[in-house]
Structure formats: structure tokens, C-alpha cells
């Protein structure tokens, strides 16, 4: 049983409680012990804040890292954005004495000091590298036979690849293998690596929705039963996006269930669907659940 400090971030507890539910219920079954640190704040978000003030961004992230250091725990994140921020800042502070000094000067005002003793991991890494495909396969109770799943990685779990070093940013395979381990089939589809568009949502909502549209078209074309992903922001884009795309000028009727990977894992481990928060899904997942039954 490995202990991790659970870093929920902002979106999951505020907008997607069912993802938190799935993580808290399913991950311990794979020997991942989640420990809460209530003092955790915003990660903070890796793009806007960083552009505004890189120093502030690093210092704020360092507070979260310090909290985990005090408990002697590695951080597990459920969100790609939190992962990018915390992993990047942790790596930079570990390797760059100049930045470390600067950040510690700020942290000293609240009586904290960054030491660089702990690591930050994405739930994808923990499942793929630490638990491993073989162990997951061995624990599967109910194979998700015949379910075709379109895998979406999300940008910030892979890039900047030189710092994050999670998987090949052009040909990632970890989530595909994790899906296949459940007995389901990860299908190839065009625009698999297309970004969900969260980054431009605030500036150009119309084009962002076209990005979601283009991807969903390909997913439907390959007759996928559902999409799966590990990032709450991608999740929101593809789920909410389907509702928004019903309107002008898109007029598209998509019905692609979006599954959070731990939910799929939970089902495969034999959990009853009622234990998981499927009723909170905005695009109904019943066809998938029926197929599994």
C-alpha cells in the first residue's frame, strides 16, 4: 500500500464530484492510499498565472509542495493542469538553485521552506508505472469485453515532454494499454492527439467548440462506445461541449459517453455502477453500462 497526498485541484471538487468519488473509491482497491491535506490550495493553473508572473506561480506551487514535504508524502494529482504545474515547479526547484533561493525567500514569510524531497505523480503514471498493466489485468473481475473506447490523453500530462517525461508525446501508449488491460479495446481514431481547447476557451469559444466537434466526429465515425480521459478539464469540454454543440451554428447531435478512467477501472474491478456517480454524467452512460452487463 503506497501512501500519496491527494491533490484534487479546483475543478474536480467544485464541478465534478463524481470524479473525486470514483478516485476515492477505486484507487485504494489498487493499493493506492489517498491521504488528504486540507491546506492544499490552487495548484495554480499553469498557463495564465505563469504568464502573469512566473515567480508568483512558482512560489504558490511551492507552498503545496512544502505541505506534502512536511507530511513526507509524494503528491498524486487527478488533473493534468495541476500535474504540469506541480511537476514543472518541483523539477525546476530541484535543479535550479537560483530559483529555489528566490522561492524560499518568499516562503520564509509564512515560515515555510522548500527542500525538494518529494515527487509529484499523475494518476496515469501511478497506475501505469507503479501499479502496472499486469497487476491491473490480474485484478480485473469483469472484463469490459467488446467495449470500444476512444482514448484522450490531454496535453499537459505529456507536454512539455522534456520536463514531464511521462510518455512519448507523439505516440503515447500508457492510457491505451491501461484501457486494453480492462479487456476493452482502445481504438485508433483520427485527431487522437487533438487538444480539447480549454486553453483558448476564454478567447475564442466558437473555435474551441469546433475543436471539440472535430474530435467527436472522428470518435463517432470509428463507432466508439465511449471516450475516456484522466483530466477534468478535458472531461468538461467533451461532456459539456456535446450539449453546447446542439446549438447554432454546429447543430450536432453527439451522444458519446465520457468516462473517467477510474470509473472504467472500478467497473472492471467488479464494482456496482450504483457505487459510482454515473447519475452525475451529463451525457448518459447507460449504453455503455448495458453493454458491460
Amino acid at each position: 500500500m503506497a501512501d500519496y497526498a491527494l491533490f484534487l485541484g479546483c475543478n474536480i471538487p467544485n464541478r465534478l464530484p463524481h470524479l473525486e468519488l470514483a478516485a476515492r473509491k477505486v484507487l485504494p482497491k489498487m493499493d493506492i492510499n489517498l491521504i488528504d491535506i486540507p491546506e492544499f490550495g490552487c495548484c495554480p493553473e499553469p498557463i495564465g498565472i505563469q504568464e502573469l508572473s512566473r515567480d508568483a506561480w512558482m512560489a504558490m506551487a511551492a507552498i503545496n509542495l512544502c505541505l506534502a514535504e512536511e507530511k513526507g508524502l509524494d503528491i498524486i494529482t487527478l488533473c493534468n493542469g495541476c500535474f504540469e504545474t506541480l511537476r514543472t515547479v518541483n523539477t525546476e526547484l530541484k535543479n535550479d538553485g537560483h530559483h529555489k533561493e528566490k522561492v524560499n525567500k518568499v516562503l520564509s514569510k509564512i515560515g515555510k521552506e522548500y527542500k525538494g524531497t518529494q515527487n509529484v505523480k499523475h494518476v496515469l503514471e501511478v497506475l501505469y508505472n507503479d501499479i502496472g498493466v499486469e497487476k491491473i489485468k490480474a485484478n480485473v473481475q469483469k472484463e469490459l469485453k467488446g467495449i470500444k473506447i476512444a482514448v484522450h490523453y490531454g496535453c499537459h500530462v505529456l507536454r512539455p515532454s522534456a520536463i514531464l517525461k511521462t510518455d512519448d508525446p507523439f505516440q503515447p501508449k500508457s492510457l491505451d494499454e491501461l484501457v486494453n488491460a480492462l479487456g476493452a479495446e482502445s481504438i485508433p481514431y483520427l485527431r487522437k492527439m487533438l487538444c480539447c481547447g480549454t486553453g483558448i476557451e476564454g478567447i475564442d469559444k466558437e473555435n474551441q467548440l469546433w475543436m471539440v466537434h472535430d474530435k467527436l466526429v472522428q470518435v463517432e465515425r470509428m463507432k466508439a462506445d465511449c471516450m475516456t480521459m484522466l483530466c477534468p478539464l478535458c472531461y468538461i469540454q467533451y461532456e459539456m461541449g456535446q450539449l453546447q454543440l446542439k446549438k447554432e451554428p454546429y447543430k450536432a447531435q453527439f451522444k458519446v459517453p465520457i468516462m473517467y478512467y477510474p470509473e472504467l477501472l472500478g467497473l472492471a474491478l467488479g464494482m456496482d455502477p450504483s457505487e459510482l456517480g454515473f447519475k452525475l454524467h451529463r451525457v448518459k452512460v447507460d449504453p455503455v453500462l448495458q453493454k458491460i452487463q
Partner: peptide
């Protein structure tokens, strides 16, 4: 910038 492959036709975008 990028080459994408259509998994059905193996055409390249």
C-alpha cells in the same frame, strides 16, 4: 506541423 493518419483509409492529413 503534424501528420495525422486516418485509421480506416490510411490516408494522411
Amino acid at each position: 506541423a503534424e501528420i495525422l493518419e486516418d485509421p480506416e483509409t490510411h490516408n494522411l492529413i
